[in-house]
Amino acid sequence: MFDFTEEELNRYSRHILLQDVGVEGQEKIREGKVLVIGAGGLGAPVAMYLAAAGVGTIGIVDGDVVDLSNLQRQIIHTTPDVDKWKVESAKETINAINPHVKVNTYRDFLVADNALDIVKEYDFVVDGTDNFPVKFLINDACVMAGKPFSHGGILRFEGQTFTHVPGTACYRCMFKTPPPPGAVPTCSQAGVLGAIAGMLGTIQAAETLKYLTGVGELLTNKLLTFNAKTMDFRKINVKKTDRCPICGTNPTITELIDYEQAACDLHK
């Protein structure tokens, strides 16, 4: 019935053993197509865990090359990968972990012009980006295309994530509009403890796998925040709001927007 090879049954045995997953669940994971936007701090653990899990198709979007300062947290890249295109480095790691995974690389940045075309091929989208304009773009594109996604953000010692499926709260329900450029620091300005990327990225990977298999409750209509200094985790209930400019009853946003990128960046 399910055409898993001996090798795959062995490889995924720890999933198959789970009553909640089983061979049926593993098949759903194998049929899954997940888009990871950003092959950096968050995208790295997400892509690696999804590869390990056997997600059938993983798309990676990143227009950047690997920088030495990335290696502190972007564990999908290693020292010999410095100056390589991030998507190529990511693809190599993914296939080294799991040759069964089909990797689509998009050596580009997500913008209003390409967002809808890229996301439409996938079942689930993961935001692994580090700037607000693109986070809002991902939100808008996914809401417009009816795609579920995982939002994530980290800074210093904190992390924040939620999951959106059509009909539940979106990013603009919580934050109507992006902050002005430079108003809120990004990791390259304020720093981030490397392991925080792992903490949040693996939560995003878990949410993705839960979505694909249907197990458990997703972080929908919630905002999960944590502070690693105290290891306090908080889940805030959030409602989809009728007044939301994109998913509300009278949407004012009907087109994707390229907000002006933050000008401030340390190594530029």
Partner: peptide, 23 residues
């Protein structure tokens, strides 16, 4: 009452220029 901050930060008063200078 819940305060929601962009990206999980929000309690730090240090400015970006100060960080540049410190570095």
């Amino acid at each position: 009452v819940d305060f929601l901050y962009f990206m999980g930060g929000g309690q730090d008063k240090e400015s970006i220029e100060y960080r540049f200078g410190r570095l």
